[in-house]
């Protein structure tokens, strides 16, 4: 602010100074709650030009907008993935590679197919009767859409955390131990105790480890036998993440994990996601644009009609998106 006087101050050289529930079935098995998907036909006119829902732009998606070069290995390689719910074309020919040990955000308006895409990664769409999936999804090179894939094993590798915290109505300890016990990784039941092979100590170690990893241990270690439903919403969500970690997954899918939480609980979940990405591959659907910008390494933008329009480094997508429709969507001018 000071005036530049020639004798007292030298000016710097100027040049150097330079969704909600709407797009995810709440009860996955019930066709009545199928995603509210705008069909491809709605989004594409006769000459093949694509419009926003408001119809104010007209652009063709370019392949290079979706090409994302990253260092390291791809955890998922998805090719030409199409998902139909009955006659609705929810995902159109999505091809994308998701890097391991990173956070990938999926954003887009309600009904754009991002939750459908997320559920495709551990075949949760199989639970929707009218869903038809075509294309290929490989995890570490292994195709998950083929006969003989063990879905229980797949969902153990690819865990999921949902929008609303959904702990079991059991104790905190049992919430964590339930999965490993079901999978037979630890045995603590009466029979195991009778046969003298109870893994109670191993279970307690696992419970502590998972709760620590989910940044919850300090808050609940004195009440592990209390009912999990007595925890706050944010604690319940971290418990669900701990529960997800207990079966030693490789990938954590999160569908709006913080949308029901207050800013403090949200911040804890976001910190946790960042820490988890050092060991796990995290894929997160969020409607909170700032959250996507804050926590993700790369961002994929889906727009009306189940189309992947742009995919790239998060800073590139939020600072200088290639697609005009993506620009309109993230700046709030969409529709």
């Amino acid at each position: 602010m000071s005036e530049t006087t020639p004798t007292t101050k030298t000016d710097r050289p100027a040049k150097t100074d330079q969704s909600t529930e709407a797009d995810q079935p709440t009860e996955a098995d019930q066709p009545a709650n199928e995603p509210d998907v705008t069909t491809a036909a709605d989004a594409t006119n006769g000459d093949g030009a694509t419009h926003t829902t408001a119809g104010e732009t007209d652009e063709q998606v370019r392949e290079e907008w979706r090409e994302y070069d990253f260092e390291g290995m791809a955890k998922f390689a998805v090719e030409d993935l199409d998902v139909h719910y009955g006659d609705d074309h929810a995902l159109q020919g999505v091809s994308i590679e998701i890097p391991e040990n990173s956070v990938t955000a999926l954003i887009g308006p309600s009904g754009c197919g991002k939750s459908t895409f997320l559920r495709s990664l551990n075949r949760m769409n199989d639970r929707i009767k009218s869903a038809r999936v075509d294309g290929s999804v490989r995890i570490d090179g292994q195709e998950i859409y083929q006969d003989g894939v063990n879905l229980v094993e797949l969902r153990k590798r690819v865990g999921m955390v949902f929008q609303s915290p959904n702990p079991f109505p059991k104790s905190i300890r049992e919430n964590i131990a339930y999965g490993p016990e079901k999978h037979g990784d630890i045995e603590t039941g009466p029979l195991a105790r009778l046969l003298g092979r109870s893994d109670a100590a191993a279970r307690d170690r696992l419970v502590e480890e998972c709760l620590r990893d989910a940044a919850l241990w300090e808050e609940v270690n004195d009440r592990l036998d209390d009912n999990a439903l007595g925890l706050s919403g944010g604690q319940q969500q971290r418990l669900c993440i701990a529960r997800c970690l207990s079966v030693d997954p490789e990938v954590i899918l999160m569908d709006e994990p913080a949308s029901a939480l207050d800013p403090i609980a949200t911040a804890k979940i976001e910190d946790l996601i960042e820490q988890l990405s050092e060991e796990y591959t995290v894929v997160i659907v969020t409607h909170n644009m700032q959250q996507a910008a804050r926590i993700s390494d790369q961002t994929a933008v889906f727009l009306t009609g189940g189309e992947l329009v742009e995919y790239g480094d998060t800073d590139q997508v939020f600072e200088d998106p290639h697609s005009e429709r993506v620009e309109d969507y993230i700046t709030g001018k969409f529709g």
Partner: peptide, 9 residues
């Protein structure tokens, strides 16, 4: 307002 993209620039 947390501007992004063209608005941010």
């Amino acid at each position: 307002q947390q501007p992004v993209a063209g608005d941010l620039r």
